[in-house]
Design a binder for these strands. Sequence first.
RNA 1: GUCCCGGUAGCUCAGUCGGAUAGAGCAACGGCCUUCUAAGCCGUGGGUCGGGGGUUCGAAUCCCUCCCGGGGCGCCA
Length: 592
Amino acid sequence: MKAELQNLIGQAIESLQNDGTLPTDIELKIQIDRTRDKSHGDFACNIAMLLAKPAKAKPRDLAAQIVAALPASDIVTNVEIAGPGFINFFLVSDAQLAVVGKILAAGEQFGRSSKGAGKRVQVEFVSANPTGPLHVGHGRGAAYGATVADLLEAVGFDVHREYYVNDAGRQMDILATSVWLRYLGLCGVELEYPGEQDFPSNGYKGDYVWDIAATLHRENGDAMQKSWTEISEDLPADEPSGGDKEEHIDGLINKAKTLLRDDQYRLVFDLGLNYILDDIRDDLEHFGVTYDEWYSERSLTDSGAVMKALERLQASGHAYEKEGAIWFKSSDFGDEKDRVLVRDNGQTTYFASDIAYHMDKMERGFERVIDIWGADHHGYVPRVKAALEALGDDPKKLDVLLVQFAILYRGGEKAQMSTRSGEFVTLRQLRKEVGNDAARFFYVMRKSEQHLDFDLDLAMSQSSDNPMYYIQYAHARVCSMLRKLEEKGLSYDQSNGLNNLAMLDTDHEQAVMSKLDQYAEVVENAALNHEPHQLVHYLRELANDFHSWYNAHKVIIDESDLRDARLALSQAVRQVTANGLKLLGVSAPESM
RNA sequence: GUCCCGGUAGCUCAGUCGGAUAGAGCAACGGCCUUCUAAGCCGUGGGUCGGGGGUUCGAAUCCCUCCCGGGGCGCCA
């Protein structure tokens, strides 16, 4: 409907250009808005005010000329000029009736489009270090990323969902070492720390580490047992004993590597990695979040991709050596300062892997690459873009979406989220407590760059306070009506309903239809702007319009033409609500 | 210090490209169940859009500046 009005205005402007009233060299952006106030018609256009200056005319006069030049249309009943120069369109009353038939015909497909034209888009999200279970902070990235991916797919993009597995680097070594130390405990070896301490302060202390260690012990017996005397020899002291916790844990890592030798160490390392990765995969699957690919960081080193990236940067003069390290001259590309690629000990940095990873993403031919990161990584964006530019890729192809933290509230109390201490709220705990639906819904309810206060009590409450139940209730209500119809021995003739839609002339019914008519636009906007919350708000408004109508007018009545028409509209509401909830990863229950 | 995000009703938040009288929900108050699910509906009150300048037909929205809250600024990942 909007497109048709745009077309009308476009034709009017063209004819004014042809007769010389308007200059031909103007940039046209015809904007048609739905009006807030029905006395302003159904749609309004501000084009006359925008063109007033280049046309050297008064906005209202220009508007009059445009209106005079408008071609005839069978959906427009009246056009008015109002205020400073708005052109208001009044549509024939049954112009939006057609949407009901379209919805019922398209069913689950309604609202989907081919706007994206099959362009390949990669969405990389969560990508949490596999050093422990996902916590509630990762949950927001998971829900947001999955919904953004689903929305993009709904509007016709070819979406590739990817999880970058950080299976290399120091954090993973700390995990492997933590597992081994717990394993030693199971072998009966006591870690002799002074005082109360019984584990490295920088080690991973969660229960899952014990679980992995138990598996290690079950499968290998005492084969990897070493004495504390061997381990503690020349080991730097831990922080509580006056040492440095980083040096202490690095010392332990080195001990683990040398005492176990490569093959055994790798076995411990991979056991921990796979155990946690399986756990994460399982967790996300239950959350309705799936991936096309789990991309290994280690594979970038093994395949030589990291070396290749380094060579390309050096060959193009964007890398240099200083103080024994190799640096990327990212300051040439807008970053605050240069960044280390290879440390003075010869090890490549995480950043070097990430450059190789993004180079690889570009080489895989994605037309758009979306990274979803926690907001605490925002400082990292300029250097990744700088690297892409230095490598000759277009940094504009990379879109980094930052997600702010989610803070759990129960009563008024915040939950701590430290993986290291082992005292954190896991995503799994959250899902169990509030359910998958509420978790998915609440996570995307707010704009992603907005801090999220996740109110556990509200998410669990089965009342009108809870917007998710409110929306689901609209769906369940329609289902209930259809059941009631059957109980009463009445039938529903859909085509008769569609033929009698013109009988739906109350304000409530008009409001519902108008809202239904907006669905496709909302999905498209939410997808292109990466803003799932727009869909959440829309669904709430639709439910609101439906509940109001439901309370004002009875659907199951004796008069069959009107009854069928109302049932058709109800069915359309149910379909759109179900489609919208599906995109959010939330179920649409048939009864509540 | 510098960079990013935020500041809109008592609370939690919407507000698309600059559009007409700034909107929801909750909370408060008052109504609606012999009738399709009251997990619902209707009504009332509630605003310096953080402050101040600017741009223009028009600013919550764009620009400048200041204030407040959160976060980032490693040869960690």
